[in-house]
Design a protein around this nucleic acid. Structure first.
Lengths: 192, 192
DNA sequence: CTGGGTAAGTCAACAAACCTGTCGTATGCT
DNA sequence: AGCATACGACAGGTTTGTTGACTTACCCAG
């Protein structure tokens, strides 16, 4: 079943020699990107679902787990700003993760109102299991596409994001490639 | 506050000239891709939310609208296979779109059990409005990244998807670039 | 033409993951 | 002391997804 057949019947035969309607091509290009973002995100996130289901957790939990693992010691507010959900939505997910021993909360040293988030050993182990599934997909993609393509991928993805997210990415990238940045130099520190 | 610095405290100073721990870099590379997929998807889909809210529609409606617009004349089953949701979830969205005059259903000619989906004029207009918002983001990304990067982006995104989605993409791509395919040749074509 | 399988719609009940709004507590800053 | 901030919690609501059982209409093969 399913077949997934495309009935691309919309006119505009671009058979003309020099003319080939550039506007049409550009638009098609972008609609294709829409498709791809949907499919890639669907299949990438879906890769971890099996494990998640086993544990009775959802994708929301995975997202929290991922970002806490990325920047241990982050505050609840930071996580809120990244996920763009409300405090209450996060609270539900977070308390579940804390209760099940995946996430630890420690009072901030400089500001004791904060509860700095980090993964416990169990949390790290779980995050790793989830990551491995997604890693497989990504490894396939990177291998098939080749090094230069991966660089292009990064540049486009970066461009789609909002400025704050770019800053996040640039900082993370600086960890692994201390030279050669695309965007403007970034300041010493960042507001949310 | 927030700092957002990754506490890569796990030993192995990659300062060594030739050694630079490739395994670590590869893993960081992939975690970075995880981040980017999240941010890019979040911001890309979010771009259309303003309009959606105005009309009391959600992202589920947008997704349906998009794919129906992409391949007019598709069956409900096709759409189900693409979205990967249940019949009932789709039914809710679809009946709303039909009732509000955005989507038309026509009985199939060869198989009259089917109800072929297409956008009405109003549906096309709405889809275009939604698309324009997302197009802006994409235009920025494409412009900043440059042509070769876009090609790389496509290759990686394609690799992340499941086979069925690749086929879909390959067919859509064949419309705008009849030559030079990466994947295997695809079947004859499909009547609308 | 009859019977079995298929495409789609529908009803009912439920769960996940969001949302708004409000309040309280501890803490920081001026 | 007074106001702002970081976080948690309660109450109630929406969207979007789920399962399962059932109906209607249709295709096709025997």
């Amino acid at each position: 079943m399913s077949e997934t057949r495309s009935a691309v019947s919309s006119g505009l035969d671009p058979r003309g020699p020099a003319g080939t309607n550039l506007l049409f091509l550009r638009e098609e290009q972008m609609r294709l990107a829409q498709d791809m973002l949907f499919f890639a995100y669907r299949d990438f996130t879906g890769a971890a679902d099996v494990i998640l289901d086993e544990l009775g957790l959802g994708r929301a939990h995975h997202r929290a787990l991922h970002f806490i693992g990325r920047t241990p010691g982050m505050t609840v507010g930071d996580l809120l700003a990244i996920l763009r959900i409300t405090k209450q939505s996060l609270a539900r997910v977070l308390t579940a993760l804390v209760e099940q021993g995946y996430v630890a909360q420690l009072p901030g040293r400089s500001d004791r109102r904060q509860r700095l988030l980090s993964l416990t050993d169990a949390g790290q182990a779980l995050e790793r299991r989830l990551f491995e599934r997604q890693r497989e997909r990504l490894a396939i993609a990177y291998r098939e596409a080749g090094g230069p393509a991966v660089e292009g991928f990064r540049r486009v993805m970066r461009g789609v994001m909002e400025p704050a997210a770019r800053t996040y990415i640039d900082q993370a990238e600086a960890t692994i490639r201390p030279g050669a940045r695309i965007g403007p130099r970034i300041g010493p520190k960042v507001g949310p």
